[in-house]
């Protein structure tokens, strides 16, 4: 489950330390002085070594519950188990897209995050309750009794509230 490459890449990308980047520094005052004399010039520096002692980040604890019983949890093709379910993942190892399935219910696609501990309770909807879900469409009018599209209203939008 541990993906060292993931952690390494993220750390490398993040710089692994609290930098003093030009971007995060306050604007620099500008002067017109000449370039420093040759004595100030130095040969190329070897790569400096900064010793920072920092403990590795602890893993995150993730949990999945559902409003139906024994809901199967899939991560891609892999069946992780059934609810209630707990797992441990490396911190900041990316979001986990899960699919929850149970007989007689709509499958639910959800996501866990790994930047901190995350626990969810997924609401499962029975197939018979389709119209309670947002996005469920009412049946269109049958062709024989179809009504023409309603006329366009031309009321102006109300003025912005103060």
């Amino acid at each position: 489950m541990i993906r060292p490459a993931t952690v390494a890449l993220l750390l490398a990308a993040a710089g692994c330390h609290r930098s003093t980047d030009a971007a995060s520094a306050p604007p620099t005052p500008r002067t017109d002085a000449a370039i420093a004399p040759a004595s100030a010039a130095l040969p190329p520096a070897p790569a400096p070594v900064v010793v920072v002692t920092k403990a590795p980040l602890p893993p995150v604890h993730l949990g999945v519950r559902a409003t139906a019983r024994r809901v199967k949890i899939f991560w891609g093709k892999k069946l992780l188990g059934a609810t209630p379910f707990a797992l441990e993942r490396p911190r900041d190892s990316g979001p986990i897209d899960l699919l929850l399935r149970a007989e007689g219910y709509f499958p639910v696609h959800t996501r866990l995050y790994t930047h901190k501990n995350d626990a969810i309770t997924v609401s499962m909807t029975k197939l018979a309750d389709r119209m309670t879900l947002f996005g469920a469409k009412k049946e269109p009018a049958p062709p024989a009794t179809a009504t023409p599209p309603p006329a366009i209203e031309t009321q102006p939008v109300s003025a912005p509230k103060p």
Binding site: G15, T20, D21, A47
Partner: peptide, 8 residues
């Protein structure tokens, strides 16, 4: 990683 990364 933490020991080898130089700072600006």
């Amino acid at each position: 990683l933490f020991t080898l990364r130089p700072s600006h």
